[in-house]
């Protein structure tokens, strides 16, 4: 889907932003964004074509030990029942490799968050949906695109899985706050730089991304790809 140009106020500014005490509007150029997260079917096709990313071949440096842990059959391939579900248990490196193979890239965090803001449509309901997802224990994942899209025509940004972004951990402090001055995400100081203190859902997304490293995988962590318009 084409996400049109626009601006939004990021929840946090990137940590290299100079001395800005509060987040301000950021302009996002138009970009292409996959309408749904990448499915097991598509990722299977990618692995078939690029065997280096098969669970038995992937280089240890690119993932932790849970890479594609849900591909349990003898061939180490996706279960047929799961083909239309979002692929999870993939590291950032694998996600990036997949997108490159499609001549795409991972969306930036700002692009992803901008797509979520949906031009300001129905934010209250959106936030409630997100909180409900976070406060419900894991259930069997449904197929992608099971719920209506947002105003940009993008499906499943919330309520399905977490998604990798290209610059997932470039917003808050490094993991040890001793090196970070006041900018970090813990206890009270998390609220010092946020643009909307009432948006708990955003705190959760940013802190989730901050907890990741490129080789991490998760049962609720997948991705979708993006592409420049030019």
């Amino acid at each position: 889907m084409l996400v049109p140009e626009g601006s939004f106020t990021p929840f946090f500014l990137k940590k290299d932003t100079a001395n800005s005490s509060s987040a301000t509007a950021t302009v996002i150029n138009a970009f292409w964004l996959d309408a749904t997260p990448v499915t097991n079917r598509k990722f299977q096709a990618f692995v078939n074509k690029h065997p280096a990313w098969h669970p038995s071949n992937i280089r240890k440096i690119f993932t932790d030990s849970h890479y594609l842990a849900h591909w349990q059959n003898a061939q180490g391939s996706a279960d047929t029942a799961d083909l239309d579900k979002p692929v999870v248990n993939v590291s950032w490196f694998a996600a990036e490799a997949y997108c490159e193979a499609q001549d795409k890239r991972l969306p930036s965090t700002d692009e992803w968050e901008y797509a979520l803001t949906d031009n300001g449509r129905d934010q209250e309901n959106l936030q409630k949906q997100i909180i409900n997802w976070y406060s419900t224990p894991n259930q069997e994942l449904p197929a992608v695109g099971s719920k209506p899209p947002n105003g940009f025509g993008v499906f499943d940004l919330v309520g399905l899985i977490w998604e990798w972004t290209a610059d997932f951990n470039s917003y808050m402090a490094p993991p040890d706050s001793r090196n970070s001055g006041e900018k970090n995400l813990f206890c009270g100081s998390g609220s010092l730089n946020a643009s909307n203190l009432g948006d708990y859902a955003a705190f959760m997304r940013y802190s989730y991304r901050e907890s990741l490293k490129g080789n991490f995988t998760g049962r609720n962590l997948g991705f979708r790809c993006a592409k420049d318009t030019k």
Binding site: W162, F186, C187, S207, N220, L221
Partner: peptide
């Protein structure tokens, strides 16, 4: 690994920045 959220721990018994919070931020499955 079944958890959705990253978590950490701040122990008030700890002397040190964040009481361990920053050092213990942990993604699900880690």
């Amino acid at each position: 690994p079944d958890n959705k959220m990253p978590h950490n721990i701040d122990l008030h018994a700890v002397t040190g920045p964040g009481g361990g919070a920053a050092a213990s931020l942990t993604a699900p499955g880690h």
